[in-house]
Design a protein around this nucleic acid. Structure first.
Lengths: 237, 237
DNA sequence: CTGTGTCAACTAACATGTTAGCATTCCAAT
DNA sequence: ATTGGAATGCTAACATGTTAGTTGACACAG
């Protein structure tokens, strides 16, 4: 009776709500999104509304809205009158996301380099020093957090609040795939050096140098993602 | 009893559905979006779900989803437990949209210039000839259509299908504001000349020249938008 | 063993009822 | 006349019932 490929009793563990704030729909959205990005809900997973409703103790309305939003982000695909599943990776989408992120972030860093204030510069150098501290302590997680923080700072210094959101939206697939990469020995140190060059260029008010440094920095990640399609073909469409 | 500023009996004319295809939610979304972009629903308009439901002959579900999506696009703002209104313009948002569009389109045109095939080039030159025809016939609307078509072609030639969607999403506010501009005498001719330079650069496989030509072309529009905040302050927040 | 058609189970999409928060108004008290 | 506060009316947010279309399994014919 029990087939060899007993796939899923669908017992998924969602990061229980209650701790989160805002409307129910918002909380459900965040819970699902977190689970998807953390690969707790791997690509191909069937999202059963009913099950999610029971598990979170809410009705179908907020769950439906959450799934609709995730579909808009490209993390979930909805098949009319049939079901919703977590999207699989596609190398072309990853490349597209990287292209988009690069386009936006290069423009942003050039603008910031051209117009930066002293205050902004000191906030960036302060962030850089924090990165150095994390490296000294071999605190990978901390370094990752400060890394993301640096990119956020650059976006915010453009004065355009939605830029970060949109860049992140395009970047989502890349970020999700990144979860699969083992942290590479020495990569953090390498990234730190690249960050230094970027911030040096901002200090020098040299937009072109900033662009090039950022471009070099961003191109690294996609390169490291390529082999995934060989090692985990089940996650790609 | 009748106040001097008798504002709105809310009798809004929506482009009736039925002609459209897809789910109800999709159709309602398109209808509302079209009406907003055409300024049939001017900034500040209160969107009353009940009224829209009656007028379109559907229930609140698809209308709610449509409004949610429009809010995600920034065309509508939802005030919890109160109501939804069409967003007013904000010059900073227009600048942000233009910055985003520029970042994406410059990257796109540079990539296309570097990698274009003969076939793509001939499709672009064919489009350019169509533009010339429209100019000869003083067909402003036709020129506008071919103008948009040219930008779409460039996006599609990158091989990244979602690029056009995202650029358009950022561009929405700019496009909406553009409706308010009277067509300027000789502007179409000027735009045509700019298009020619762009396509020349693509022909020469010169990414840097293509970038600069496109940048010049895009910067025109925002400049023309600036005076609006003086002439129509009621539409800005 | 393979291809085809029917049927049952499941799902998204849609409709509608319920709840609770905000705003506006209107009246009363000062 | 001005202010404060209760009451009313409106709305989004949430819950739940209904409809119709898709999928996949199973029986049956070739």
């Amino acid at each position: 009776m029990s087939l060899p490929n007993e796939q899923d009793p669908d017992e998924i563990a969602l990061p229980d709500i209650g701790k989160l704030t805002g409307s129910l729909a918002q909380r459900v959205y965040e819970a699902l999104r977190t689970a998807i990005l953390a690969m707790d809900l791997p690509p191909g997973t069937n999202l059963k509304k009913q099950l999610i409703c029971e598990q979170l103790g809410v009705s179908r309305s907020p769950v439906t809205e959450a799934i609709t939003r995730l579909a808009g982000e490209g993390l979930v695909e909805v098949v009319p009158q049939s079901g919703s599943r977590v999207t699989k990776f596609s190398m072309s989408e990853i490349h597209e996301g990287a292209f988009l992120r690069e386009a936006i972030e290069l423009a942003a860093v050039a603008k910031v380099a051209a117009e930066r204030t002293e205050e902004q510069l000191s906030e960036l150098t302060r962030n850089l020093r924090l990165q150095a501290l994390c490296l000294e302590d071999f605190d990978e997680a901390g370094f990752y957090r400060e890394d993301e923080r640096m990119h956020e700072l650059i976006f915010s210094f453009t004065g355009y609040p939605k830029l970060n959101t949109l860049a992140a939206a395009g970047w989502v697939q890349v970020n999700r795939a990144r979860q699969l990469l083992l942290p590479m020995r020495g990569r953090a140190q390498e990234a730190y050096e690249e960050h230094k060059v970027i911030i040096d260029a901002i200090r020098d008010r040299d937009p072109e140098k900033a662009r090039q440094a950022m471009q070099k920095h961003l191109s690294r990640l996609v390169t490291r993602l390529e082999p995934l399609i060989e090692s985990r073909p089940d996650l790609f469409d």
